[in-house]
Each structure stands twice: as structure tokens, then as C-alpha cells.
Design a protein around this nucleic acid. Structure first.
Length: 562
RNA sequence: UGGGGUGUCGCCAAGCGGUAAGGCACUGGAUUUUGAUUCCAGCAUACCUAGGUUCGAAUCCUAGCACCCCAGCCA
């Protein structure tokens, strides 16, 4: 069963098609994914990764992986490694085209000298606060810096001395000379270089004490790599004139086209790096790879497949409109993928002991059961049935309406893949809690309907004698609010869902689950899809993360007061 | 009250002057030893609003309205 979507058509796709038709870049297509190594990749990055790498695939082009590492204060080698792992895991490859903006520091410096020589950049002595003051506001023009008219010679000397480390942090900055009255704030003589002493850059070490800024670095890095289409998010739209300005004023033979699209917002999650970092640092989650995190590391550990995430990125589309995507779409993608590929197993999350009294003590029946209802290729396995089994507490009620198709006192239900049983006796503790059921099975019902009766319900079960102890972690949305980022002034941390993780320690799984290995995904019949955790695995039990529940129309009926 | 954007079904999203794709969600129904899957059917006389042009407009024009982004030596 394939769920291939036809070539996604979005406005960027069309721009590229038109460019190829007109021979704009000689028919070449080159994109890049340019993360800053200051945090882990999240689902929003996945959209950009799929877009950039996907475009390269669609048009037989190339997509580079480039670390935008111009701010050593925030960046870290741990992130550059994690990011590569995540991109690869998502299913994309950059061959030998792994670049760092810092690879270009020397060229960037030379281009800055060129700008100075052309009178288009100058060294400014204003401090940060003064610069802000001179910049003006959204509605008022800024004022020229008193250092704006320094001679080329003086600027050249000062810039060289900046590089030589003669000035302390913040003492000077190299600025583009554009227009302090521009209605576009980005054009009011933006800073090109700042001074940063005492930081060890993960790539260049202590070679530099001046670092170029994004707006200056990005267009040049793109051009040096021969990028044809530089795709970024909407908030950079106002920066495009500056992107073009830089390339128009230096001697370089490539001018990529910047194209912006709107970033992904997902309901019930935050994707700002600052907030994700805070969740980790403040211990609200167990780490960047906590299965509740929208990070690729978190989704991976949760059990999401790369294919599901790619499908999701295709389905959300690419446009310029602000959007907030429902979690249901992501869930649909993983269900769809796992439904096809995940072997089925039986596991009882909240066990209720059932004794089948007409089954002899010590008697074990090995049942051969399919691993998948629609895919014989996934094979079969043997599941043992014996006198004492567990069923789920939710599958029994002393009495219920006819809508309830499971087991009731005195009623019958089928044990999945096995026999029909009848509940003969309900045993309770002193508090009146049901603690055990006494049942009898009908030997004539294996693979056959009982004579003269209809048994609609089918429930899953696990043989007690063969049960594998399970710890099952049930995840729910991390935030109760749809937009924790913007919840009427409430801090997103107040909106954390206290029930985002429920850990069941009494769960049991069928015998074959003992063989499961970290990362294995199963459908626990009637419960959902689960993945064996790779971090918490313990000796005495198997730890499973719930990836997603099954669709549950019964839950809907119940909600509606059924 | 500067500049740049965006407004099509509950959520995404096609459409680019010829009479509203698709997906998710939802609602019926069929099959089912997972209340799963699968299948079949339904789901915008309507495209932010108001005018206008046109035989014909979501698509063109005009005027509004709403929302998003920009005043880091962050990216």
C-alpha cells in the first residue's frame, strides 16, 4: 500500500520551474539547509529540510548542509553533530557538501574590505545603545552616525585593527553605509561585523575576534556555494533588500534568489529554540529527546518514522500564509505509516486477572497468530493461552448498555485469536473493587462462531504465566493550550499539561515481546502504536513509549454519553 | 499614524477571468475475531468586507477591515 503523493506543487516549485524554463541559472538548481548550531532540530526544521532537499531531488539539483555558525556565543559542537544525525535520520543526504559559514570567514573579511574601499562600509564607534538611538523608530527616520564619513583609509586601518584584536568587545562595529532614513529598518546602516573576544569558536577556535553577522554572511555564503534559490522563512522578507544589496556591491558572479515561505506552527507545541531550551534546562522534560518534545530527536525516540514526518511535511504544503496545523494531521501520518508496517502484538495496560476454570492447571495451548491482519508477509507467531490470563480493566463492566461490546458479568466475549469466554463470577475486594473474574471458555469457538449466539466483542489478553512485565509510557500533548506561545499573556510554562506523561508500571505483554529491541515498533492491538524505548530499557521490564493511539470511535460514543 | 506581508470549508491548501482540487477533521453506511484497517457516501450557491469593470470575477480595479513581521553589535 503506497501513499505516494504526486509531485507537490507549491509556489516555490513553480518559481523554479519558471527559472528552469527561462534558463535563469543555466537550468541549475541548488538549495541549502542552513541551521544555526545552537539547538536541536524540530518539526519546523523538518519542513525546511524536506522543502530544500526535496526541491533538489525534484529538479535533479543539489542541496547543501551549511551551518550558519557566525555567533560562537550561542553555538556548540554538540549541536552540529546532533543536527547532522537528525537530517540523515529524516532521510536526506548532502554527500560531501557539508559547509560552515565559518569556512568563508577569510573571504567574508576580504569582501568587507572591498565594501570599505568602495565607500559602502565604515567603522562606527557608537556603542550598542547609541546605535539604537541613532536608528530612529518605525515611524521616524534615523540619523547618520558621526563616524559615517570616515575616509576609506581610516576605515581600512580601523577594520584591520579590529581584526588584530586592538579593540575590546563592543568598542567598534563595521557597518554598511546604506540609508539611515530607509523605511526598512534593515537598511539603516546595518552592522556587518562585531568584536567578540575570548570565545572559542567550535570550528575556527581563536583565529578570529571579529565575527560577521547573518545579513552579511548569508548572501555571500549562498553565492560562494552557487546556490540558485535561497529559501528562508517569512520573517526574513524585510532582509531581502539587504541580501541583494550585499551581493550587488561586491565582486561576485552569483546572485541567488531569496524566497520566503511561512514557518510551521503546530497546535499544542512550541518550537522556538529559546523555549525548547528552557523546557530542557528547567527540567520540564527529560531532555531534548524527551518523547513529548517536537524535536526530531524527541519524535524519533517517541517512535515516529522519518517517512511519516516527510509525509506530514508534504501534506501541510508550502505557502506564505500564517498557519497553525492541527496535531491530528501529524498523528494521521504516523498512524497511516505504522498501520502498514507495524507488527501486531497483545499487551494489557491495566491488567485484570481472569481464571478460565474449565482450562486445566498447567495446560498451555499455543496459538498460531498472524502478525498483521492484512499483510501475510509479516508472518505469524505463537501466542500461549493458559488457565490464568489478564484482560484490560476497561474491557470489563459488571453491567453496561448494549452498546458496550466487551465483557459483562454473565456475558460472553471473544478472546482475540482464541476462544469465546463467559464471565461466571466476579470477585471483589473488601472495598468492592473487581479484582478477579472467573470464566469458562467454549472449546468449539476457536476460529468458529458459537452455535446459535452472536458474540460481537473481541478483546485482547495475555497469558499470566507467560507475561512479560512492561512499563508503558502514555504521552499526551505537552501543552493544554493550542498556542502556548501566544495565550493571552500567560507564560507557556503555566500551560504545560500535567498529564503529558502517564507511566503504567503494571502492564504486561505477550511472551514474544521479551524479544523486542530498542526502537522496535508494534501495534498493541486495540491500544495504539508503541516503540521500545532506547534510553530507559531496564533488566526487569520492557519500557514502551506510546507513539499514538488507534482511532477510537468507542471513546467518541462514550464522550457523547453513550 | 513608517515599511513589508497575508486573508479560499473546523485545520492545512489548490486555483492566476469561464462558473470552488485534494488532504486532515467531521457525519452517515458496508465489511471486519483490533469499536483498528479498508470501502462507499456526505461535507464552501461560496472565496475578509463593500463597491466597480466584465456576457462571466476567488481570480482585474477601488476603498476599507483583520491578522502577522520589522526599531539585536541574534539567526
Amino acid at each position: 500500500m503506497s501513499h505516494q503523493t504526486e509531485a507537490p506543487s507549491n509556489f516555490i516549485h513553480k518559481i523554479i520551474e519558471a527559472d528552469i524554463a527561462s534558463g535563469k541559472h543555466g537550468g541549475r538548481v541548488a538549495t541549502r539547509f542552513p541551521p544555526e548550531p545552537n539547538g536541536y532540530l524540530h518539526i519546523g526544521h523538518a519542513k525546511s529540510i524536506c522543502l530544500n532537499f526535496g526541491l533538489a531531488v525534484d529538479f535533479n539539483g543539489r542541496c547543501n548542509l551549511r551551518f550558519d555558525d557566525t555567533n560562537p556565543h550561542k553555538e556548540n559542537i554538540e549541536y552540529v553533530e546532533a543536527i547532522q544525525q537528525d537530517v540523515r535520520w529524516l532521510g536526506f543526504d548532502w554527500d560531501d557538501r557539508l559547509y560552515y559559514a565559518s569556512d568563508y570567514f577569510e573571504q567574508l573579511y576580504l569582501y568587507a574590505v572591498e565594501l570599505i574601499n568602495k565607500g559602502r562600509a565604515y567603522v562606527c564607534d557608537l556603542d550598542a545603545e547609541q546605535v539604537r538611538d541613532y536608528r530612529g523608530t518605525l515611524t521616524e527616520p534615523g540619523r547618520n552616525s558621526p563616524y559615517r564619513e570616515r575616509s576609506v583609509a581610516e576605515n581600512l586601518e580601523l577594520f584591520a585593527r579590529m581584526r588584530a584584536g586592538e579593540f575590546p568587545d563592543g568598542a567598534k562595529v563595521l557597518r554598511a553605509k546604506i540609508d539611515m532614513a530607509s523605511p526598512n529598518m534593515n537598511l539603516r546602516d546595518p552592522a556587518l561585523y562585531r568584536i567578540r573576544h575570548g570565545v572559542i569558536h567550535h570550528q575556527t577556535g581563536e583565529a578570529w575576534c571579529i565575527y560577521p553577522l547573518y545579513d552579511y554572511t548569508h548572501p555571500i555564503s549562498d553565492a560562494l556555494e552557487g546556490i540558485t534559490h535561497s529559501i528562508c522563512t517569512l520573517e526574513f522578507e524585510d532582509h531581502r533588500p539587504l541580501y541583494d544589496w550585499v551581493l550587488d556591491h561586491i565582486t561576485i558572479d552569483c546572485h541567488p534568489q531569496q524566497i520566503e515561505f511561512s514557518r510551521l506552527n503546530l497546535e499544542h507545541t512550541v518550537v522556538s529554540k529559546r523555549k525548547l531550551t528552557q523546557l530542557v534546562d528547567d527540567g520540564h522534560v527529560e531532555g531534548w529527546d524527551d518523547p513529548r518534545m517536537p524535536t526530531l530527536a524527541g519524535l524519533r525516540r517517541r517512535g515516529y518514522t522519518p517517512a511519516a514526518i516527510r509525509t506530514f511535511c508534504e501534506r501541510i504544503g508550502v505557502s506564505r500564509a500564517d498557519s497553525l496545523v492541527e496535531m491530528a494531521l501529524l498523528e494521521n501520518c504516523i498512524r497511516e505509516d505504522l498501520n502498514d508496517i507495524a507488527p501486531r502484538r497483545m499487551a494489557v495496560l491495566k491488567p485484570l486477572k481472569v481464571v478460565i476454570e474449565n482450562l486445566a492447571e498447567g495446560q498451555v495451548e499455543e496459538l498460531e497468530v498472524p502478525n498483521h491482519p492484512q499483510q501475510p508477509a509479516l508472518g505469524t507467531r505463537r501466542v500461549p493461552l493458559s488457565r490464568v490470563i489478564y484482560i484490560d480493566q476497561d474491557d470489563f463492566r459488571e453491567e453496561a448498555s448494549k452498546k458496550f461490546k466487551r465483557l459483562v458479568a454473565g456475558g460472553e466475549v471473544r478472546l482475540r485469536f482464541a476462544y469465546v469466554i463467559r464471565c461466571d463470577q466476579v470477585i471483589k475486594d473488601a472495598q468492592g473493587n473487581v479484582i478477579e473474574l472467573r470464566c469458562s471458555y467454549d472449546p468449539a469457538t476457536l476460529g468458529a462462531d458459537p452455535a446459535g449466539r452472536k458474540v460481537k466483542g473481541v478483546i485482547h489478553w495475555v497469558s499470566a504465566a507467560h507475561a512479560v512485565p512492561l512499563e508503558v509510557r502514555l504521552y499526551d500533548r505537552l501543552f493544554t493550550h493550542k498556542t502556548p506561545d501566544n495565550a493571552g499573556g500567560r507564560d507557556y510554562r503555566e500551560l504545560l499539561n500535567p498529564e503529558s506523561l502517564r507511566t503504567l508500571t503494571q502492564a504486561v505483554g505477550e511472551r514474544s515481546l521479551a524479544q523486542a529491541r530498542a526502537g522496535d515498533r508494534f501495534q498493541f492491538e486495540r491500544e495504539g502504536y508503541f516503540c521500545l524505548d532506547g534510553v530507559l530499557a531496564a533488566k526487569d521490564r520492557q519500557v514502551f513509549n506510546r507513539i499514538v493511539t488507534l482511532r477510537d470511535s468507542w471513546a467518541k460514543i462514550e464522550e457523547q454519553g453513550g
